[in-house]
Design a protein around this nucleic acid. Structure first.
Length: 476
DNA sequence: ATGTGC
């Protein structure tokens, strides 16, 4: 897009002053290149978000932002319920609480090398992946209720995982305020056989090598050293989150007039935080957060089982689990005043800095780990939260590379088979049930994750700690 | 993202 539409505030901060119906400015964190390459749609969507009732400070876009449904993916917006603030299903996204968790394996790359194929086979065999993938777990009414209200804590009670995992998950593995009675029968039905499955699209399980350390002190606390092998899991709330998003989007679109909300774009459908519909959505959305947390917890258990068949006796410790599609009630300081705000992060990672009260003791000095997944065949990054991120974007950072090309365009440009061969030549093993899926996820269909992370770091959204390179990728 | 599509 045309960068002359912005006032450049500093090296990485680009502002659009309020105009028309905008209540607050819109701010994009990027360098000139990333901004130029961003779709004009991001400008339109972000300025539209800035018109919504009760929005405070600004509508933000992270450096990986791209065109999404209503809100841009890579968007952050906070709303004050006392100012008539709203919650928007499109501001969270369809894959509610999609996120990333990273596990230490205790192995180094030399130890893994002779067993790469065997590990790839074991993981691919053990973890269901792909569109409509089903697992071995089948939920009945009671276990569904337990899952929706208990999240990873419920999964642990069912025997999936270890008690020390919990403190290394946002919300300690269980989202408060989940009201499962607002999750429809259809959403439950879609989920009952999908626990412990990866799904499709950009979801994956990746075995990675730590290739570079940027901050040795923080890396030490995070337990990361060059040539360590880690495993990262990227997935969300599957059919359940999607169904909840679809249903509430429709309800919110229909009720906008009743709540006297003027929508510049129908896709921005929302409801007042204090309205019944807004509260019902929050109750259902928090249940979907628990679904995603339980799903990643079960996949962790399956991963431990698969790894044990190749490396008996190995212990996989959780580094951390972050969600990047959420709306959460948080305390933030706005104009010197402490406020309780509902922060929408859609394709944006929470990035609490040092001393944040919600962080476990182990991360009190460093800030939380911010896990950034790259695209297939490219680097991922571990960052840490900063204190200044609170003032920059309500303690938020980017979530990945961000798409640079549509899925349909990518399938016209690349063939799955060829991509797999090219990656194999670089020593990267891909296992995927869908060749079309591989083509859609071609590395060049994404922005350069290193450029995105560099800007997140320079903008103070989060600080670089370590870079990870893929070794094995199980694609959804 | 998604039992990929109103």
């Amino acid at each position: 897009m045309d960068t002359s539409q912005f006032i450049q505030r500093d090296e990485t901060c680009w502002e659009i002053k309020p105009k028309g119906a905008m209540r607050v400015p819109a701010i994009i964190y990027a360098d000139e290149q990333l901004l130029q390459d961003m779709d004009q749609k991001v400008y339109e969507q972000l300025t539209n978000v800035a018109t919504l009732p009760g929005i405070v400070e600004a509508a933000y876009a992270m450096p990986d932002a791209h065109w999404g449904y209503g809100f841009p993916i890579g968007g952050v917006a906070a709303f004050d319920p006392e100012l008539g603030g709203v919650v928007s299903a499109g501001g969270v996204g369809f894959d509610i609480s999609c996120g990333v968790r990273t596990l230490h394996t205790g192995l180094n790359i030399t130890q893994l090398e002779p067993h790469k194929q065997a590990l790839a086979d074991a993981l691919y065999r053990t973890i269901p992946a792909g569109v409509g993938s089903k697992g071995k777990i089948h939920l009945n009414h009671k276990s569904m209720l337990g899952m929706l209200t208990g999240g990873a804590q419920w999964a642990l009670e069912q025997g999936y995982g270890e008690v020390q995992d919990l403190e290394r998950i946002e919300e300690h593995g269980c989202m408060d305020g989940a009201e499962s009675h607002y999750v429809s029968p259809k959403a439950r039905e879609r989920q009952k056989d999908e626990m412990g499955t990866l799904g499709s699209g950009n979801h994956y399980l990746e075995v990675q090598r730590v290739s570079k350390i940027f901050d040795p002190a923080v890396a030490k606390v995070f337990g990361l050293h060059v040539d360590d092998v880690v495993i990262s899991i990227h997935c969300g709330s599957r059919g359940l989150g999607h169904q909840i998003g679809t249903e509430f989007l429709k309800d919110m679109a229909m009720s906008a007039a009743q709540y006297q909300i003027v929508l510049p774009d129908r896709e921005l459908a929302c409801a007042p935080l204090n309205s019944p519909l807004g509260k019902h959505y929050l109750g259902a959305m928090r249940s979907a957060i628990n679904c995603a947390l339980a799903n990643r917890q079960i996949i962790t258990h399956l991963t431990r089982q698969a790894v044990a068949t190749v490396f008996p006796g190995l212990h996989l410790d959780l580094l951390y689990d972050v969600s990047h599609n959420t709306c959460k009630l948080e305390q933030h300081t706005v104009n010197g005043q402490k406020k309780s705000l509902y922060v929408h992060r859609k394709g944006a990672t929470r990035a609490f800095g040092p001393d944040h009260p919600d962080l476990p003791d182990v991360f009190k000095k460093t800030g939380q780990p911010v896990l950034i997944g790259g695209s297939m065949g490219t680097s991922s990054y571990v960052l840490c939260g900063t204190k200044e991120s609170e003032q920059r974007a309500f303690s938020s950072a980017c979530h990945g590379a961000g798409r640079a090309m549509s899925r349909s365009k990518a399938t016209k440009q690349w063939q799955g088979r060829t991509l797999i061969e090219q990656l194999a030549a670089q020593g990267i093993i891909i296992r995927c049930p869908s060749m079309r899926g591989v083509a859609e996820e071609a590395p060049l269909a994404y922005k350069d994750v290193s450029a995105v992370v560099e800007i997140a770091d320079r903008a103070g959204l989060a600080r670089k700690v370590a870079r990870l390179e893929p070794v094995i990728c199980i694609k959804g």
